[in-house]
Design a protein around this nucleic acid. Sequence first.
DNA 1: AATCCGGGGTG
DNA 2: CACCCAGGATT
Length: 235
Amino acid sequence: MDFAQTLLAWYPDHKRDLPWRDTPNPYHIWLSEVILQQTRVKQGLPYYVAFVELFPTVQDLANASEELVMRTWQGLGYYSRARNMHATAKIIAQAWQGNFPTTKADLIKLKGIGEYTASAIASFAFGEQVAVVDGNVFRVLSRFFGIEADISSPKGVKHFQELAKTLLPTQQSQTYNQAIMEFGALQCTPQKPNCMFCPLQAGCVAHATGKQDSLPVKTQKIKQVVYTWQWFFIK
DNA sequence: AATCCGGGGTG
DNA sequence: CACCCAGGATT
């Protein structure tokens, strides 16, 4: 069984039951994707529930006050996500008559929707044949194929995006995209991946070479936050 | 290409 | 404390 088929077989028995799964509603999918940017599912889930409850449709979000939108986002961080989301809701409500753009090409033009999110919405909501590449996918691919391209450089990112394209199955590409991300989140985790019980173990380069902990390669300037005893005196 | 944006969990 | 999280925008 090849890479994609193994993940497709693994997925049904392991996937978490999340409210934005198994829905074709592009508005709900978009909400979840924006909320989950650089945010763990456990932290984002209650915010997703709150947004759907307060703003059932994209028109409702568009018509909401900036103050209410920001207040609902309060505590999630990366606040430009909320401002961009609100602006994009207005664009979709007006220029698109409340109907989401249905292609990655059109989606990526919207504020707060980049390469990843455009691909995710196009795949999950509209079944477009595009590979979705997020932090989970970088990790799974770099380990399984033993790729040491640096994911903090545009060149490295491109390398993984090209590889991801070649792996995309012609059938069930949408489910496959969700499967590989879920696999990265639950099985091929950043620290202490569960290699002992892994359906991809036999073909995994990182497992064979013991490089699980050094992949993916990500070189980045470490921002040094200095904590000193002086803080103690700040009242 | 490098920086910035952030709260929260993990080892 | 260092690193990471369903990344994107700006410089």
